[in-house]
Amino acid sequence: MEISVYKYNGEETGRKITLPEGVFTVEPSDHAIYLDIKQFLANQRQGTHKSKERAEIVGSTKKLKKQKGTGTARAGSIKSPIFRGGGRVFGPRPRNYSFKLNKKLKVLARKSALTYKAQDNNITVIEDFSFDEIKTKKYLKMLQDLSVADKKTLLVVADKDNNLLLSSRNVKSAKVITAEQLCTYDVLHADNLLLSESSVSKIENLLN
């Protein structure tokens, strides 16, 4: 699949790049995508939720009323879940929500996500560039020149660029990552995928 290469100011370079078939034109697996995103979101959970059960409530241990002759149900403790201020039945406890996925499945999920983006023509390849200063206005200008300012964008670069990363950090709908940080959730969450020219080969090496 051939795609035009643009400069970061929106101009065409006149060159084209071929997206690797083994990464951008695979048979997509929706189930692999589902599992990978499920794992990603599960790993974001802190799992620190906790409620007190009746054994953990501070209160009197005195029997509330006599056992018989009251005409109402028996009650032995003010800490019972049926009373206001009592413990909670089967309340949440701290736990780890993460789970394991095979590496091959995660690779397939990322390839599937990239394939969907390629099929929808939502991939833009940009000639390698860098910012000589940290300037959010400059990053916004780049998005406008590429006609994606009103969309959620994910820019993938080959190597870490602090000026580029910090310039985009205050832009709510934009995210910058390196090829090693590429994940299924970020690819599908973005409306438009921006790839630096050198990141294409790096992504191919990582996923193959």
Rank of each mutant, 00 (worst) to 15 (best):
K135P: 01
R45I: 00
R169S: 04
S60E: 02
K172Y: 04
E180K: 15
L195H: 00
K137V: 06
A190D: 01
T136P: 10
S4I: 02
S51A: 14
Y139N: 06
D120M: 13
A158W: 08
Q119P: 02
L195S: 02
L182M: 13
I37Y: 02
G14N: 00
K111A: 02
S173N: 09
H31A: 00
S196C: 13
T72L: 12
K117D: 00
Q46G: 09
D186N: 14
F129N: 01
G47P: 12
C183N: 12
S4C: 11
Q119N: 09
S77V: 08
D161M: 13
Y139F: 15
T61D: 05
D150H: 13
I3C: 01
K141T: 04
K104W: 11
N162A: 09
L165F: 13
L143F: 01
V176L: 08
F40Q: 06
S51F: 10
G85P: 08
L182I: 12
L108W: 10
K137S: 06
V107R: 15
T18G: 13
R169Q: 12
V187H: 09
T124W: 10
S173Q: 11
L41T: 05
S130W: 10
D186V: 05
L146R: 05
T61A: 08
T48E: 10
V148D: 00
T115A: 09
G22R: 15
I134V: 15
N208A: 03
A113Q: 04
A190L: 14
P20W: 12
G69Y: 05
I134Q: 10
K104Q: 11
L194F: 00
T124L: 10
T184K: 10
